[in-house]
């Protein structure tokens, strides 16, 4: 019996440019660069104070949670447009139940999370079993929940509940004198859990497998239907959790809260190096994506003369750049 000659397949050469971690490194590098720029330019205004960095988490914790949920969906090759509306709805629901119905927050929070998860489940069910594009189904979700916000109340409901107030004001001290908010801590915990689930559980690997090739995943005997529906359920849950964090952050419910936040979430995911066509991406990348979007806002604030709309333009430019990078990477892989 002859043994197969040891052939060294040509992988080294292509490995560098196709490493799936490369986009995350680029994003992280960009973040460091931008932060360095801020530190240099606004040295005199206390940019290097540790709290400026921590505020990125405090101000964008809710976005991070939503973007983590979106990451799950996008890795499978889907998309969830209902994120912003579901967040808005959660703020309204929470504010209404707490303020108008007098329920304790401890009871309201699980209800809100369950509603979000169930909404995601329903959308996932329709997407998978009726083979309707995720784009359309979650678009209907976007309308529906924004509508429900208005049905609850056309006016903003501000929350004066003491528990909410206390939670919102709580500072989690960190060494070096800086602090985080509860919401920021929760968002980091969500990130950690998501990382664990995606990389260390069978469910997580199925999410990647479906994004890589749904047909193959099916032929390999993987439970594709369950996984796809679960992914939208996760996104729904994350949106609701994000809504709760947003409620803490802003201490009110408003039918116009978080309008268009799904775009920020998707932008953060894409900038974080996740392929919109699915199959490749890391939640750590999403973290950097969120941080970059947050940093743009911070820099613009520090600059003072620049107006808020530059945030949108800069986000668009970043999106464009990263989509081009993705395109170049997938094109090379295709040949």
């Amino acid at each position: 019996m002859t043994t197969i000659s040891r052939v060294h397949w040509k992988t080294r050469r292509t490995r560098m440019s196709q490493d799936r971690r490369l986009p995350v490194l680029v994003t992280a590098g960009l973040f460091v660069l931008m932060f360095g720029f801020g530190a240099f330019r606004y040295q005199a205004y206390g940019f290097l104070d540790g709290q400026v960095f921590m505020n990125l988490f405090i101000d964008n914790g809710y976005l991070l949670v939503a973007a983590v949920g979106a990451t799950f969906v996008i890795i499978t090759g889907g998309i969830d447009l209902s994120v912003g509306s579901l967040i808005g709805f959660t703020t309204m629901l929470t504010a209404w139940l707490v303020e108008k119905q007098g329920l304790p927050l401890a009871a309201v929070a699980p209800i809100a999370l369950a509603v979000g998860a169930f909404a995601g489940y329903l959308m996932g069910y329709v997407i998978h079993h009726f083979e309707i594009e995720p784009f359309i189904v979650t678009l209907a979700g976007l309308f529906f929940f924004r509508g429900l916000c208005l049905v609850i109340s056309k006016e903003s409901i501000s929350i004066s509940d003491p528990t909410v107030d206390r939670l919102a004001q709580t500072h989690v001290p960190l060494p070096g004198g800086s602090f985080l908010s509860i919401a920021a801590v929760v968002s980091l915990a969500v990130l950690a859990v998501a990382f664990y689930v995606l990389h260390h559980t069978r469910f997580g690997r199925r999410v990647y497998a479906i994004g890589g090739n749904e047909q193959s995943a099916l032929l390999m005997g993987l439970p594709v239907a369950g996984t796809k529906i679960a992914v939208y359920t996760v996104s729904g849950f994350c949106s609701a959790l994000s809504g709760l964090l947003f409620t803490l952050y802003i201490q009110s419910g408003d039918p116009l809260h978080a309008v268009g936040l799904e775009l920020d979430a998707i932008a953060a995911v894409v900038v974080g190096g996740t392929l919109l066509t699915g199959g490749s991406g890391y939640v750590i990348g999403t973290l950097f994506g969120v941080l970059i979007l947050g940093l743009i806002k911070t820099l613009i604030q520090f600059e003072g003369t620049l107006s808020s709309w530059w945030t949108k333009i800069a986000t668009g430019v970043l999106l464009f750049a990263f989509i081009l990078i993705q395109r170049a990477m997938t094109a090379r892989r295709g040949t």
Binding site: W309, T311, K312, I313, G316, V317, L319, F320
Partner: peptide
């Protein structure tokens, strides 16, 4: 999506 995000910023600009 790119123009959807950036376009609003341009309009405000």
């Amino acid at each position: 999506l790119i123009l959807m995000v950036a376009g609003r910023g341009i309009a405000q600009l």
